[in-house]
Design a protein around this nucleic acid. Structure first.
Ligand SMILES: [Zn+2]
Ligand SMILES: [Zn+2]
Ligand SMILES: [Zn+2]
Ligand SMILES: [Zn+2]
Lengths: 132, 132
DNA sequence: TAAAATTTGTTATAATATAACACTATGTAA
DNA sequence: TTACATAGTGTTATATTATAACAAATTTTA
């Protein structure tokens, strides 16, 4: 049953929920949403989330403790992520910008540390919110 | 008493602690450390932290829920922050790189959103840990 | 001095995340 | 097929991080 798409039952349920959502979802929001499907306790949610993040299917928005589905197709291991976040409506949008990604992936720390991963979060007010 | 350096008593106590620390400090670690100075409850700590972040005296490392003193002198309101984080020893270092900062401050989202703030976290293994 | 704004102290509670353990399902290879 | 290793599940309890709400004191401004 598992190998079809390499997601386990709980992982698939939780991924589907996040993937359908237009906004970032929090762990306990997810928990309440999937209780009817038999997922009843926090560890079940967090374990699935951990795995999905690990494989790049979803990303964690660190400043919000919330999760979004990857929209970028080329971030298989969540090693180069960038997001735009509206401080008014909480909308989050994954930024897929090759130049930005290359610039940051090639960035070298003065102190000689070699980076293997980065996460960038931009904040502002989105177009839609500016109109209101 | 307050206006001398524009930090209140609790803010100063907590800033001093973070500023002396060589590693990021978590809110409850801070709480335990300052109980002898009369700060006894979480809200006292979080309020001081909020204010210190707001004024750019400290920054929050979002991926660690921990706080470091600003080492950059020119980030008065924490609006353009970048850090290097060692995944082995947990060391955090603020990156002050004018080019990087300018590049990101000038970055324009394809969808027309104007950014007023960003936070960037790089992850890797620091030099010291590589030797071990 | 009086009013406004900020800071403090305090109790309780909300929200986020993990430890630990027993068990089941799946993949691999003798 | 059997046996073993790996990954996933279900469950209870607990740890960690953060805020709400309210009363009092301090500082700033006018
Ligand atoms: Zn992605
Ligand atoms: Zn918005
Ligand atoms: Zn700084
Ligand atoms: Zn290190």
């Amino acid at each position: 049953m598992y190998k079809e798409n390499n997601l386990s039952k709980n992982q698939q349920i939780i991924f589907d929920l996040i993937n359908k959502s237009s906004e970032p979802l929090k762990a306990y929001t997810i928990l309440f949403s999937v209780q009817k499907k038999g997922i009843k306790a926090p560890p079940q949610v967090y374990r699935a989330l951990d795995k999905l993040v690990e494989t790049g299917k979803i990303h964690k928005i660190e400043s919000k403790n919330a999760f979004v589905a990857c929209r970028s197709s080329d971030c298989e291991i969540s090693k180069a992520t960038a997001f735009s976040i509206c401080e008014s409506c909480e909308m989050v949008d994954e930024i897929s910008d090759t130049k930005l990604s290359k610039y940051l992936s090639g960035f070298n720390h003065k102190k000689g540390m070699k980076f293997k991963r980065f996460n960038l979060e931009f904040f502002g007010i989105c177009k839609k919110c500016k109109k209101d």
